[in-house]
Amino acid sequence: MNDSKADGDDRAANSNRNTTRLKIWTAAWVMTTAIAAFGAKLVWDFAPLPTIGAQFLNLGAGVGMIIATCRYVQGLDELQQMIFLQAGAITLGVGLVVGLSYDLLEDVRLIAFEPEISHLVMLMCLTFLLATIVGHWRYR
């Protein structure tokens, strides 16, 4: 048991490092998304070069966020990975089923407005959050 505290500290430090890395990449992705979305309209008046640059910047930050997420998941232990995987599967299912139904609503004229992708993203975020909380509650 002599090394257990060191092992635990290593694991905690590694987990904190992965979480911090994921937070930074997520913040970068959100910021570059905002720049890509509003920059062309509000700052450089749809000039092609900065618009393309902003899109590539956003794509790069997105790739970074995906890699950071993979490292974060690899750093979790097997129970936490299972909870993450189940939450991801539920989110994928809800996103696919509700997303397609939501898109169909306009086609069959049940709603008058055009379905927004942001609504689907919000639903998926809330679903993942709820599924993760329930997962942790189940194995508490």
Binding site: M1, D7, G8, R11, E78, L79, Q80, H136, Y139, R140
Partner: peptide, 8 residues
């Protein structure tokens, strides 16, 4: 800590 998993 010994088994390198979470307390949960």
């Amino acid at each position: 800590a010994e088994l390198e998993v979470s307390r949960q």
